[in-house]
Write a protein that binds this DNA or RNA. Sequence first.
DNA 1: CTAAATGCAAATTGTTTGCAGAAAC
DNA 2: GTTTCTGCAAACAATTTGCATTTAG
Lengths: 151, 151
Amino acid sequence: MREFLKTKGFKMTPQRELIFRSFFELTDHVSVDELYIKVRKKDSSIGYSTVWRNLKLICKVGLAEEVNVGDGITRYDHITKVPHGHLFCINCKKLIEFNVEQIIAILAQTASDKNFAPESFKIEIQGYCEECSKDNKSDSNGFSQKQQKLN
Amino acid sequence: MREFLKTKGFKMTPQRELIFRSFFELTDHVSVDELYIKVRKKDSSIGYSTVWRNLKLICKVGLAEEVNVGDGITRYDHITKVPHGHLFCINCKKLIEFNVEQIIAILAQTASDKNFAPESFKIEIQGYCEECSKDNKSDSNGFSQKQQKLN
DNA sequence: CTAAATGCAAATTGTTTGCAGAAAC
DNA sequence: GTTTCTGCAAACAATTTGCATTTAG
């Protein structure tokens, strides 16, 4: 890792190492806050912006990407070999991945039909996960939490 | 429209009428700011929050929905009969729609496989539109504007 | 040494709310 | 009249930056 970063002109520091480790240990999609809290448990002197900047750096060197589901919080997703979509649970905010190879093929075709040069795809299903759809009869009326209250 | 709103317990006002009209006149996806500017040209006394609240209201009564492409700006999309995806141009920020019926079918299947109760789908391709991909050789290096500069 | 990284505090940006007065019905 | 709406200013929340200082290479 240290070598890898060096080739890109970045240095390794204890804080960076801890942040990177913590991020790669996780399998799910963290927000800056979540990672900050996790990292703080190991070293409480680390600043928020250091975590933020390192998460950006991880994206910059191509090891993660930002995911934005529209709830105002940016999460960071490991870049895996396989492209995937997200099931986002409106209730518990969990992100579940699923395979999209078939869909990507269709999208690539669509883009080319429209002379659009694609850089990335985003495929997402919002709804209620298995657990949440059980005890959520009343809430699932078609409006998202956010749209729900209108002052 | 006035009648329609009345049935839902909302009143019609001159400001609301202007905002609604301005929104429905447009075919593309506006942000609050954009609509605010447009509306201001007709009536410069209208406040930002009035525009914001009315846009939310339009969503609430089911005539539009929020679209979030991850650049930090919420845009509002007319709800049309046909479900559609978005081509988002990273350069000029334009949103172009495309048909996704085929894909929705696959997604519905995916959700049901995972016992996930879907409420909505989001299908998006980010990249460069026809015009922007011409004069954008230098810029299109795989990083988005935002990720580009990292302090 | 020099360039990059850190931690803090403060700036920014977009969204949302509280409230007093005005307007709809 | 009562309820909703408006406009303003202020609150919020998340992201981003400036800067003095420290640290890696």
